[in-house]
Design a protein around this nucleic acid. Structure first.
Length: 979
DNA sequence: GAGTTTGAAACT
DNA sequence: CAGTTTCAAACTC
């Protein structure tokens, strides 16, 4: 089901969208596939031969509220060597003329000049106020040159009522209800099952007429009526899908190839009881008594399906929505020669893809349309298609099956976008090959670019909220049983349920293999082995991709991934290694939400830069996508997405102890933390230096030994160090970002509690709960809304296996404290200093150890705290002012001082100067330097130097400004300055 | 790694 | 709401 949605989504994409390598059954969930097979077999039992030279005309009454019907002719995918093309098929000229005559002047019937005209299948979904054939009385119905006689008995099958149809060439054929052909019975067919009988018995409920041309009327069809007596689909052996197709309107009529045709309509299964039921026409007996098996699988043209109206098929748990075909010929308009009540509208809507006629009143147009659809170099009757692997092959038109519309499993799938519905996703079946190949018909001008564009993906979105209609073959929201859990497909192909507290529904990152995208629905009891342990961070990583603009990146899919993320405000530090892809679950999750909720501003820098590695590789074009997002607190994040190789790399803060979620990373760090950060940045630079480069560094330092803070040599060494580790990434911004990102925290004393993420040095806590079952807030994982993963906990229930218990625990926690899962540390307003919402309650630690949540969060204690002997107010031991001595006057450091009553006299005002905007501006200036240098192909050393110079200039300006303001501040009110 | 300390969470 | 207990992380050795 999910795959169906996904494929639909694929088709909504433009023609550059990478095609999935699905087979059709990959698109079906097992039950559905099985159902399909059953239907196929059912049809086959009636002689579903795909190679009978037949034409079929389906007429369907089209009602205003009816949903789109679609023909999914897939019966041949397993056995028929013939590849059929549906949407490109047109009526042959005689039949087209007949149809036109029948349908009216405004009806355009186009015919494709197919060589195998005998296999053309025409489906008319008319808009008649359908009346049963017998409603015509004994008078024959004449459609064009084809006459449909009143129900009668066939000349050679006494007792079996047949509907003779006189064709244009004078032949008379008889329609006979689906017979158990294999049984060879010629006995009278029960009324309820014989079409003629049914026509005679169902009164005015017959909605469809089966037209034919000559003896070629064929096709396994279902004819619906509203006859209550026929509503029991089970009596007919209809599948659940059939029974589920309700007629939202009593006059809904469908004539469709049954089974694999997939023409199923109806919004819900609730109407199944009163739903018009379908009777299959499986054989056609010709005038000479020849019994012709209906050709269910033969190509067909679907006429007059309603555009952009999803056809909902009631499925197991959700409706399957099929949207309109992109290339179907839609005939609307009154059938002139049909009884009153016909409501076909004189519209032809060929919302065609590139290979479809837009509109035509003649068959020649269709022919032209097909011709023009092919590349100029492609022979007529051929199409240039692109496989999922990017290969472009020429396929005969007849070998292409348009797969649009495709059933969609979503219950809320909206109608297809007509503009996007023209994407040429097709299935082809090549002789000698089993299964369908899904390709895209390339437009004329895309045969060269499609391959390169294959990895180009449409802008990804981050959706918020509970399961919604997403059609994506990567990560999607699916239903889990009867509940609506948010489950995402991860890059690793596993299903990851999002913690209940999360509301993010991201989509999968581009470049992932669509073949792995099949995500079967989860039952209530789905254990999801291996899934619950999957990292949410796998999903989180994708979020960064989503935020990056991949439209113009021509590199590998990985190039779309955000390589650098700068999260400006950090409460702690992370990521020691600059080379390994980092994942910081908590922070990334934060970023997910941020990006999903906040508007994005993106700047793109395209740089034809020099080879920064110094290798012989030619300069590569680099694209920097700087995505700036703001969180709820106004703190902005930037993502530098470089076009090029490299793995996603993020810079995030670590997960704080006990519930330091979301807001921790989003909120402004106080001055002390900023100072600490700068100091750590400095320290980090030292750590990045390889020992082998120490000597060179010393030499450089001798040259610039008077530089006391961040110096070029250090940065240069940093850059070189990084370049050594990641030689293929020739971009100077990376070390820059290394510098700018929060440096790693010192190694934890207890390694088990805070391990380094193997993916990128991102610290991720692993709980060690033993008694709480990880379902209480004692557990950091639980408190952070995460599943336990790689933890050393015992009897852990914080996973999908115990989702029920887990959610109960969540509810319990929320009952006790509705804010239990809210960030403990927030800032009242954007730019304000962060504060612990509850405050600590320390008594013995002096709030100078990590026992203290305030201290751990690197924020000073506030009036909210009830701590005793608090020392977490100034002179923070973790703050080394070396790097900040000249940055901020010490008087501007944390000025939190309690008076005798414990009231704080003054808040920290440092953030007035070193705001996130200032930091961001500084970074942007540095980046701009990089960009400019790359444009000029300047040496990386120069770039590094200038970047650091830019940083220095910025810092000087900040310092100068801060000093000036500080002086003014003290002058104005010295009393407010605490010691 | 074991034991201790600590403070938040949970409980009464 | 306060006191107590439970719990797991932080910390020490």
């Amino acid at each position: 089901m999910l795959s169906l949605k996904n494929l639909k989504k694929r088709d909504e994409l433009d023609d550059t969208t990478t095609l999935p390598g699905f087979t059709f059954y990959d698109l079906l969930e097992p039950s559905m596939a099985s159902k399909q097979q059953n239907l196929d077999s059912d049809d086959n039992g009636g002689g579903c031969d795909t190679n009978l030279g037949m034409k079929r005309v389906y007429m369907e009454k089209k009602e205003p509220s009816a949903t789109t019907n679609e023909l999914l002719n897939t019966s041949g995918q397993k056995k028929a060597p013939i590849v059929r093309i549906l949407e490109n098929k047109r009526l042959t000229a005689p039949m087209g003329a007949a149809l036109k005559n029948m349908l009216g002047e405004n009806v355009r019937v186009v015919t494709t000049p197919t060589k195998t005209a005998s296999t053309t299948e025409i489906k008319i979904l008319n808009k008649l106020q359908a009346k049963p054939l017998n409603a015509f009385g004994n008078a024959p119905v004449k459609i064009g040159s084809t006459t449909i006689a009143a129900p009668t008995t066939s000349p050679k099958n006494i007792g079996v009522k047949m509907t003779p149809i006189k064709t244009a060439d004078g032949k008379v054929i008889y329609l006979q209800k689906s017979l158990p052909v294999t049984g060879g019975t010629t006995s009278k067919v029960p009324l309820a099952s014989g079409i003629s009988d049914r026509l005679a018995s169902t009164g005015s409920n017959i909605r469809h007429a089966i037209l034919s041309k000559g003896v070629t009327l064929s096709g396994t069809c279902t004819i619906k009526s509203n006859s209550p007596s026929l509503s029991s689909s089970t009596a007919r052996g209809l599948t659940a899908a059939e029974t589920a197709k309700p007629a939202a309107h009593p006059s809904t009529n469908v004539v469709t190839p049954s089974a694999s045709s997939g023409l199923i309509k109806g919004p819900s299964s609730a109407d199944a009881v009163s739903t018009p039921v379908a009777t299959k026409i499986q054989v056609v007996r010709t005038a000479d008594g020849k019994l012709i098996k209906l050709n269910q699988g033969s190509p067909s043209v679907l006429l007059n399906t309603k555009p952009a109206i999803p056809t909902t098929v009631s499925g197991n748990n959700s409706n399957k929505v099929m949207s309109k075909p992109t290339a179907q010929v839609i005939i609307k308009g009154p059938l002139k020669q049909l009884p009153a009540g016909s409501s076909l509208r004189p519209i032809i809507n060929n919302s065609g893809s590139s290979n479809n006629a837009t509109s035509s009143s003649s068959s020649a147009v269709a022919s032209t349309a097909i011709t023009t659809s092919a590349s100029p170099s492609i022979p007529g009757g051929k199409m240039l298609v692109q496989s999922s692997t990017g290969k472009q092959i020429v396929v005969a038109n007849k070998d292409i099956i348009k797969l649009w519309p495709m059933p969609n499993t979503s219950t809320t799938t909206t109608t297809a976008n007509p503009n996007t519905a023209s994407s040429g996703l097709h299935a082809i079946q090549l002789p000698g090959k089993s299964g369908l190949q899904y390709v895209r018909v390339l437009p004329n001008n895309s045969n060269n670019s499609s391959a390169s564009n294959e990895t180009t993906t449409s802008p990804q979105k981050v959706s918020l909220g509970r399961p919604r209609t997403t059609s994506n073959n990567t990560s999607s929201t699916i239903s889990v049983g009867n509940t609506t859990k948010i489950v995402m497909k991860t890059t690793g192909g596993s299903i990851v349920p999002l913690p209940s507290m999360q509301t993010l529904v991201p989509r999968r990152a581009p470049g992932t293999t669509p073949n792995t995208a099949y995500t079967k629905p989860l039952g209530n009891n789905s254990s999801l082995d291996g899934a619950h342990k999957h990292r949410v961070s796998d999903v989180n990583v994708q979020i960064k991709h989503l935020s990056s603009d991949s439209a113009s990146d021509a590199g590998a899919p990985e190039a779309k991934k955000a390589r650098y993320v700068i999260a400006m405000p950090h409460t702690s530090t992370t990521s020691a290694s600059g080379t390994a892809p980092a994942t910081a679950p908590a922070s990334q999750k934060n970023m997910q939400k941020i990006m999903g909720t906040r508007a994005t501003q993106m700047q793109r820098f395209t740089v034809q830069g020099a080879n920064m590695t110094g290798s012989n590789n030619p300069p590569t074009r680099k694209i920097y996508n700087l995505v700036t997002k703001s969180d709820a607190n106004g703190v902005k994040y930037m993502i530098c997405n470089k076009g090029g190789e490299g793995k996603p790399r993020t810079v995030f803060n670590t997960t704080m102890r006990r519930g330091y979620t979301l807001a921790d990373s989003k909120l402004r760090r106080p001055l002390a933390a900023q100072q600490a950060r700068l100091k750590q940045m400095k320290q980090h630079q030292h750590r990045l230096m390889l020992p082998a480069q120490a000597k060179q560094r010393q030499q450089l330092q001798q040259i610039q030994k008077h530089q006391t803070t961040i110096t070029k040599p250090q940065q240069q060494q940093t850059l070189k160090s990084t370049a050594t580790q990641e030689t293929k990434i020739a971009i100077p911004s990376k070390p820059l970002f290394d510098i700018l990102k929060p440096p790693p925290v010192p190694a934890p004393a207890a390694g088990a509690a805070a391990a380094l993420d193997a993916l990128g040095g991102t610290r991720r806590k692993h709980c060690n709960c033993s008694k709480s079952q990880c379902l209480k807030l004692y557990c950091d994982c639980f408190a952070n809304g995460e599943f336990c993963q790689d933890c050393t906990c015992k009897d852990c229930f914080n996973n999908l296996d115990y989702e029920v218990k887990r959610e109960e625990a969540i509810r319990s926690c929320l009952e006790r404290n509705p804010s239990a899962f809210k960030p403990k540390i927030t800032a009242p307003n954007s730019g304000d200093i962060r504060l612990h919402n509850k405050g600590c309650n320390c008594k013995r630690s002096g709030c100078l150890k990590n026992y203290c949540e305030c201290y751990e969060a690197k924020i000073p204690c506030s009036t909210m705290c009830k701590c005793v002997g608090c020392r977490n107010m100034e002179d923070r031991p973790d703050v080394d002012m070396d790097s900040m001595d000249s940055l901020v006057d010490t008087k501007l450091q944390t000025n939190k001082v309690k008076d005798l009553n414990g009231t704080y006299l003054q808040e920290n005002r440092s953030n007035v100067y070193l705001t996130d905007d200032v930091i961001e501006a500084t970074i942007m200036c540095m980046i701009s330097r990089i960009v400019m240098h790359e444009k000029q192909n300047l040496p990386v050393e120069d770039t590094e130097r200038e970047v650091m110079e830019e940083l220095g200039e910025s810092l000087n300006q900040i310092i100068t400004f801060a000093k000036e303001k500080n002086d003014t501040f003290h002058t104005d009110d010295p009393k407010t300055t605490a010691a």
